[in-house]
Design a protein around this nucleic acid. Sequence first.
DNA 1: CCATTTGACGTAATTTTTATGGAAAGCACG
DNA 2: CGTGCTTTCCATAAAAATTACGTCAAATGG
Lengths: 159, 159
Amino acid sequence: MDTIDFKALSELMMNGRMTWAELGSCLGLSSPATAERVRRLEDQGVIKGFTALVDHEAVGCALTAFVAVSLERPEHRNRFLQKIMEMQEVQECHHVAGEDDYLLKVRCKGTRDLERVVSDTVKSIPGVARTRTTIVMSTPKETPSPPLFPEDIIDATRR
Amino acid sequence: MDTIDFKALSELMMNGRMTWAELGSCLGLSSPATAERVRRLEDQGVIKGFTALVDHEAVGCALTAFVAVSLERPEHRNRFLQKIMEMQEVQECHHVAGEDDYLLKVRCKGTRDLERVVSDTVKSIPGVARTRTTIVMSTPKETPSPPLFPEDIIDATRR
DNA sequence: CCATTTGACGTAATTTTTATGGAAAGCACG
DNA sequence: CGTGCTTTCCATAAAAATTACGTCAAATGG
């Protein structure tokens, strides 16, 4: 991981379908060298994949909510996670420190679906003690990729 | 938006760099027709863009946290949002209903950075009354794109 | 009911991009 | 100073994207 890889990530985060030639000229490399670097980043798992960013409202997913979940006992974890993985509407599942055990980001069509997801599905999972749902009214900012700190990466290289 | 567009979204969510020919064969279309459809989805804003999914840990962003923010008065909103937009570490900012006003998803290198972001930066924004930070220990699930409900889309077409 | 228009698609030709193989430059190591 | 390894570039062949153009079907309008 050097500065060039970094710039590559940054560019590919902004436009994941740019050609290697385009990216190469940003990087000061030829297209084969660029393709090779990106392939390596994928192999290393730095790049987990490429995806289209879909507007959730445009596909009828108008409602976003955060659902905090408390589990009765740790034994229920695996079963809980397994269920969560199967649920399309759960976009994120974080194991958190603090009052609750898990924080879910749920996206669905509307309140009716939310009711189904939270009251029926989540609460029916064995071990779920309680849930606390927070409705999202608007989302002024949402970026899928982590911030990039080039300076740190240079340091990381020096390891 | 018809069933084909839907399948296209679904495929492009899984692999954002697939060729139009590949996608076309999934869709039963030729590559020009495929490219045209995808271009239209972009124009309509259904596809907001294409991006590389970067592993945050691989780039030194090891810490994820949710920060709930309460604002004193609504007048502070614009200034607050403006500041939030400038902060790389804030990956998401949701305006929420309930006890708090905003819920931020923050990603940074470690606790030291979190301290800087929350205690120094966020709390120094005028109007921020209080914050409540929840540390993420692990993230079993995280998908950037919304769930797709083909059946609803077919209905939408019938409008 | 038929002619015309419009939109979407496929095929083929052209251009661009990617993949591949081979050679040279840089670098660590002995 | 040479050896082996890595990374790069260049050239060429293969593949993909783009463009142009003709066809078809559904919608439009007389």
